Amino acid sequence: MFYPNSPQTSPQLTQIPYGQQYAMMQRQIQQPYHPFATTEPQARLYPYHYQGPIQQEQGGFITQQSTAASPQYVQMRVTPVDQSIMSGYPNQTANGSSSSSFNYNIHPQQQQQQQQQQQQLRHHAMPVGSVPLQDDRYRKQLIVNYLAPDVTSTDLHELFSRFGELDGARIIYDKQTNMSKGYGFVYFCHAEDAKEAVERMSGYEFHGKWLKVGYSTNPLNIVPSNSSPYVHAGSRGAAG
């Protein structure tokens, strides 16, 4: 039997160049792979992502010199942007860049009308829970959420009447099932009393439920100042 490094198959040491006398086997001759043993700084910083320098080929596509990437890492192929796409944008300079302001050559009167329309939209648009300043009635009506099913309009009136005089209180019921929808409205005579009720009743436990109280901004629920107070009856038909 002959071994790869046996004296019968191995040459004389004098015939082997210096430095390879003890590297006779194939696994010894093959050098191990060192990912950080390279002179390129990109490979030292990113050993798993770097795959060699990027070269520009004919046709405008950018390719990489090395083989496919590892399945664990996804390499994105980048193509140059066609400058003709950006030619339609206004205020574009000769080098292809555009300024931040756009001039669509709008007539001054049209621009003024658009600004007025935007101001009107901001004036009428009102986020949930906010209180408008032009109508004091919005500051007097509250919406009470997360009410228990057994709470009546009379219970709601008695709960909030300790903060001040009320114009009314009612629970909203479903017309088909005649069941409470879980929320109601309270109408105060003074805005200061309503503000105190919002601050003190939010998070209050009532009939096993934690109440959420806020201003009601729905104009359909506003009680006119010259109208008669609501009837605080315990029956659902009268309260709904």
Score class of each variant (00 low, 15 high):
2 F>Q: 12
2 F>D: 04
2 F>N: 10
3 Y>G: 10
3 Y>W: 05
3 Y>F: 06
4 P>A: 12
4 P>R: 13
5 N>I: 03
5 N>P: 09
6 S>E: 07
6 S>C: 06
6 S>T: 10
7 P>H: 08
9 T>K: 15
10 S>W: 04
11 P>S: 11
13 L>V: 12
13 L>T: 13
14 T>K: 15
14 T>F: 06
14 T>D: 07
15 Q>T: 09
16 I>S: 12
19 G>F: 03
19 G>H: 11
20 Q>I: 03
20 Q>L: 04
21 Q>N: 06
21 Q>K: 14
21 Q>L: 02
22 Y>F: 10
22 Y>L: 05
24 M>R: 15
24 M>T: 14
27 R>P: 03
27 R>D: 03
27 R>C: 02
31 Q>R: 14
33 Y>W: 04
33 Y>S: 13
33 Y>A: 13
35 P>T: 11
38 T>W: 07
38 T>E: 04
39 T>C: 04
43 A>N: 09
44 R>W: 02
44 R>I: 01
46 Y>K: 15
47 P>V: 00
48 Y>R: 15
49 H>K: 15
49 H>N: 11
50 Y>N: 15
51 Q>Y: 04
51 Q>H: 11
52 G>Y: 10
53 P>M: 11
53 P>L: 08
53 P>G: 12
54 I>L: 09
56 Q>E: 10
56 Q>M: 05
56 Q>R: 14
56 Q>K: 12
57 E>V: 07
57 E>I: 10
58 Q>S: 10
61 F>Y: 09
61 F>R: 15
61 F>S: 14
63 T>P: 10
64 Q>K: 14
64 Q>C: 04
65 Q>S: 10
65 Q>Y: 05
66 S>A: 12
66 S>H: 08
67 T>V: 08
67 T>K: 15
67 T>Q: 08
68 A>V: 10
70 S>N: 15
70 S>F: 05
71 P>H: 12
73 Y>T: 15
74 V>Q: 13
74 V>R: 15
75 Q>F: 00
76 M>K: 15
76 M>C: 10
77 R>P: 05
77 R>I: 02
78 V>Y: 09
79 T>A: 15
79 T>G: 07
80 P>H: 12
81 V>R: 14
84 S>Y: 04
84 S>R: 11
85 I>M: 08
86 M>E: 14
86 M>Q: 13
88 G>I: 05
89 Y>K: 14
89 Y>R: 15
90 P>F: 06
90 P>M: 12
91 N>L: 07
92 Q>I: 06
92 Q>L: 06
93 T>W: 06
95 N>A: 12
95 N>K: 13
95 N>V: 04
95 N>H: 04
96 G>M: 08
96 G>N: 09
97 S>G: 09
97 S>V: 08
98 S>N: 07
98 S>M: 15
99 S>H: 11
99 S>P: 10
100 S>Q: 11
101 S>K: 10
101 S>A: 08
101 S>M: 11
102 F>M: 14
103 N>Q: 07
103 N>L: 06
104 Y>P: 08
106 I>H: 04
106 I>G: 09
106 I>D: 03
110 Q>M: 05
110 Q>T: 09
112 Q>N: 06
112 Q>F: 11
112 Q>I: 06
112 Q>H: 12
113 Q>N: 09
113 Q>P: 07
113 Q>A: 09
114 Q>M: 12
114 Q>S: 08
115 Q>G: 08
116 Q>V: 09
117 Q>K: 10
117 Q>Y: 13
117 Q>T: 06
120 Q>F: 13
120 Q>E: 05
121 L>S: 09
122 R>P: 04
123 H>W: 06
123 H>Y: 12
124 H>E: 04
124 H>Y: 14
126 M>G: 10
128 V>P: 13
129 G>C: 10
129 G>M: 04
132 P>Y: 15
132 P>C: 09
132 P>F: 08
134 Q>P: 12
135 D>M: 14
136 D>K: 03
136 D>R: 06
136 D>C: 14
138 Y>G: 06
138 Y>F: 05
139 R>F: 15
140 K>A: 02
142 L>I: 08
142 L>C: 14
142 L>G: 00
143 I>V: 01
143 I>T: 01
143 I>E: 00
144 V>R: 01
144 V>Y: 00
144 V>P: 01
146 Y>V: 01
147 L>Y: 01
147 L>C: 15
147 L>Q: 01
148 A>S: 07
148 A>G: 06
152 T>W: 02
153 S>Q: 15
155 D>V: 11
155 D>G: 11
157 H>W: 15
157 H>G: 13
157 H>R: 12
158 E>T: 06
158 E>S: 11
160 F>A: 02
160 F>Q: 01
160 F>K: 00
161 S>M: 13
161 S>T: 07
162 R>N: 12
163 F>C: 03
164 G>H: 00
166 L>H: 00
166 L>G: 00
166 L>R: 00
167 D>W: 06
168 G>W: 08
170 R>K: 14
171 I>C: 06
171 I>P: 02
171 I>H: 00
171 I>K: 02
171 I>Y: 00
172 I>H: 01
172 I>Q: 00
172 I>C: 00
174 D>C: 14
175 K>S: 12
176 Q>H: 13
176 Q>N: 15
177 T>D: 03
178 N>S: 14
178 N>E: 13
178 N>M: 13
180 S>P: 12
184 G>T: 00
184 G>Y: 00
184 G>L: 00
184 G>E: 00
185 F>H: 00
185 F>S: 02
185 F>R: 01
186 V>G: 01
186 V>F: 00
189 C>Y: 09
190 H>E: 06
190 H>G: 05
191 A>M: 14
192 E>K: 13
194 A>F: 00
194 A>P: 01
196 E>D: 10
196 E>S: 08
197 A>L: 00
197 A>M: 00
197 A>V: 10
197 A>K: 00
198 V>K: 10
198 V>P: 00
199 E>D: 10
199 E>H: 14
200 R>V: 10
200 R>M: 04
202 S>Y: 14
204 Y>G: 03
204 Y>E: 08
204 Y>L: 14
205 E>D: 09
206 F>T: 01
207 H>F: 15
207 H>R: 08
209 K>E: 02
212 K>E: 02
212 K>T: 03
213 V>C: 10
214 G>I: 00
214 G>A: 04
214 G>K: 01
216 S>G: 00
217 T>E: 02
218 N>H: 03
218 N>D: 00
220 L>T: 04
221 N>W: 15
222 I>T: 03
222 I>A: 03
223 V>Y: 04
224 P>R: 06
227 S>C: 13
227 S>M: 11
229 P>R: 05
229 P>S: 07
230 Y>C: 09
231 V>S: 06
231 V>C: 10
231 V>M: 09
231 V>L: 14
232 H>R: 08
234 G>D: 06
234 G>M: 13
235 S>N: 11
235 S>T: 08
236 R>G: 04
236 R>H: 10
237 G>L: 08
238 A>K: 03
240 G>Y: 12
